[in-house]
């Protein structure tokens, strides 16, 4: 027990009361999204509002998944293919980050990189750069390269803002691993690369998982870049399609909610699965600078 804790009984009650508030604040809205997604719109409009839905239905999900015809089925039909696109893009970017990004992070952690201070600064700046300023350039450049409306284009664009994060996190993580470990491997006759792959990487699991999960989550959730660069039918990712659901006219909120909940589920589950490593990796990366 932390000696900083409140000890008297009144204090304990207060702590639990505050915990309830915090819990409601954190998960209440998300749970309500789920509740609306299994409700009928007419019950959401009722006054007074019933907090426990009087009727439960999967109709909204049936609509979103294309099992029932309705007027916005055209938009709904984009959800599953775009989910696949999201998966492909997020996975590809994650793989690039875990190979290129971690190696660069290792280099920063162990070697005297030329202009280290400057390049670290540049890295930091890239991390803080408004991605939106790059979009007009991507728009024209990708057009010239034939990368517009391709998943490759999105992967490239996403690397621009995920790599700095990964390098930063991994640099900090590698710094927590004693350099003696590499040295002993070198003594055993490994070269630098072998030492990195055989000795350092295997003990960097938590860092890798954190960087990977984090990258995946960023890509899964990215909206603006995909919205502008990949407009052609079948080339875009999930967030623009969900935003498109919201922009449908004459559509019930309950249907939008079910599409939103469905789209959020993978990232939420991923983050919850890896939460231990994620917290550890991210805090190491950020706190250590």
């Amino acid at each position: 027990m932390k000696p900083g804790a409140l000890e008297r009984r009144a204090g304990r009650t207060l702590v639990y009361a505050l915990l309830v508030v915090v819990t409601l604040w954190l998960v209440g809205p998300f749970i309500w999204l789920f509740v609306t997604s299994i409700s009928y719109q007419r019950n959401l409009l009722a006054r007074p509002l019933a907090l426990v839905p009087p009727e439960v239905t999967l109709d909204n999900y049936r609509m979103v998944l294309g099992m029932v015809r309705f007027h916005a089925e055209g938009q709904a039909a984009k959800i599953l293919p775009s989910m696949l696109n999201s998966l492909v893009v997020a996975t590809a970017v994650t793989v690039v980050n875990l190979t290129v990004g971690t190696t660069a992070g290792y280099a920063y952690a162990r070697f005297r990189v030329p202009m280290k201070t400057f390049s670290l600064f540049a890295l930091l700046f890239t991390r803080m750069l408004p991605t939106v300023v790059l979009i007009p350039a991507y728009f024209l450049l990708f057009k010239a390269l034939g990368l517009q409306n391709t998943l490759t284009g999105l992967v490239l664009a996403y690397c621009s803002f995920t790599l700095p994060f990964t390098i930063w996190i991994m640099k900090a993580y590698f710094e927590t691993i004693p350099a003696d470990l590499d040295k002993s491997a070198l003594v055993d006759g490994c070269n630098r690369l072998q030492a990195y792959y055989r000795v350092v990487l295997p003990v960097s699991g938590p860092g890798l998982v954190a960087a990977g999960a984090f990258t995946f989550m960023l890509c899964w959730n990215e909206f603006i870049v995909a919205q502008i660069l990949n407009t052609k039918l079948g080339t875009t990712t999930l967030p623009p399609v969900i935003a498109g659901m919201n922009a449908q006219i004459n559509i019930d909120y309950s249907v939008i909610a079910s599409s939103g909940f469905l789209s959020a589920l993978p990232a939420v589950l991923l983050v919850l699965c890896f939460q231990k490593y994620l917290v550890q990796g991210l805090t190491t990366g950020s706190v250590k600078g």
Binding site: H71, A72, E73, G74, Q75, Q248, I249
Partner: peptide, 9 residues
């Protein structure tokens, strides 16, 4: 644009 897209379809 979206106006009764099922009718159009």
């Amino acid at each position: 644009w979206v106006f009764k897209p099922d009718t159009v379809k």
